[in-house]
């Protein structure tokens, strides 16, 4: 007996459903449940239900609120810079010139390198005594004494943002470049006949037609930036004085240093709610 197409199709979906169900949806659900429990994995006592206690503690924890603020600051500033630079890169790479493919490949390199590994590289560059950044800035006369970039609460976040901009601008640029290349040439040719300047062409054709790509790039980058972990963990460990502690770092610290899994889960749930709201707003956009 031969099985019907419909049945065969469903069979093909089974592995994907199993993986996504067990490794993704179960954890999302379990995480939400755990946020209402006090979990102590070392004692072996089963989790005890404590209602909204974790959430009320969380909202009174200035360290958590600060990490939320840091995450928001990091996300907004880095995504805005990445968008502007990425758009610039994309417009530049959209022109035809010799070696364009090679340039495009080099631009892709930061994206392909492991964040955690390059974060160590950045630590070396930012190093106060032997760092190359201080050396260059001193030689250019921009600073007069060496700065402890990562040790100073005023500059540490800036350093993290710069490292993230370096890594993620290529991603934004490539998405936007693909968008640019899908805009029909004829539109530009027609407007040139009408005597349009470069700026009017950008304003009336490029930008509006690029909007879907922009929305997609911004959405992905925003969600990734909200979850940032490896960069901060390696670069600053959340310091100095908690100035670069993001939500993910906070959660990790509470889960694996203090072993408060339930409490850490509630921090995740709360953040997840924020992301959900952003997602819904994005889907409803006109």
């Amino acid at each position: 007996m031969r099985i019907t197409d419909e049945r065969f199709g469903r069979l093909l979906l089974v592995p994907a459903i199993l993986l996504v169900g067990v490794i993704a949806f179960y954890p999302i659900l379990r995480n939400a449940i755990l946020s209402f429990y006090k979990v102590d994995i070392l004692s072996g006592i089963p989790p005890t239900f404590i209602g909204f206690k974790n959430f009320s503690t969380l909202l009174q924890d200035s360290r958590f609120l600060k990490s939320l603020g840091n995450t928001a600051y990091f996300t907004i500033v880095s995504v805005v810079i990445e968008f502007m630079l990425g758009l610039g890169f994309a417009l530049l790479l959209n022109r035809t010139f010799r070696a364009r493919n090679l340039v495009r490949a080099t631009v892709l390199i930061p994206w392909a390198l492991p964040t955690a590994v390059m974060a160590i590289g950045w630590r070396w560059i930012y190093n106060d005594v032997y760092g190359v950044l201080n050396d260059i800035l001193l030689k250019l006369g921009i600073i007069s004494t060496k700065i402890a970039w990562l040790g100073n609460p005023k500059t540490a976040m800036m350093c993290a943002i710069f490292a993230d901009v370096w890594k993620s601008t290529p991603f934004v640029a490539l998405i936007l470049l693909a968008g640019l290349q899908s805009i029909p040439r004829e539109l530009y040719e027609a407007s040139e006949l009408d005597g349009a300047t470069e700026w009017t062409k950008f304003k009336l054709i490029t930008f509006p037609l690029l909007l879907p790509s922009i929305a997609l790039a911004l959405l992905f980058r925003t969600l990734q930036a909200i979850g940032i972990f490896d960069l901060m963990w390696v670069l600053t460990g959340g310091g100095p004085a908690g100035t670069t502690e993001t939500v993910s770092i906070y959660v990790y610290d509470y889960a694996y240093r203090y072993l408060r899994l339930g409490y850490a889960s509630s921090a995740v749930t709360l953040t997840f709610m924020v992301i959900l709201v952003i997602g819904v707003l994005w889907l409803r956009r006109k």
């Binding site: 490794i23 999302i28 939500v247 959660v251 899994l261 995740v268 992301i275």
Partner: peptide
Amino acid sequence: VAFFPQIIYLIPLYELFR
């Protein structure tokens, strides 16, 4: 699934793999 940061899966998977 692609929209959520990895941290959301971390604690339950930790529990499960333990």
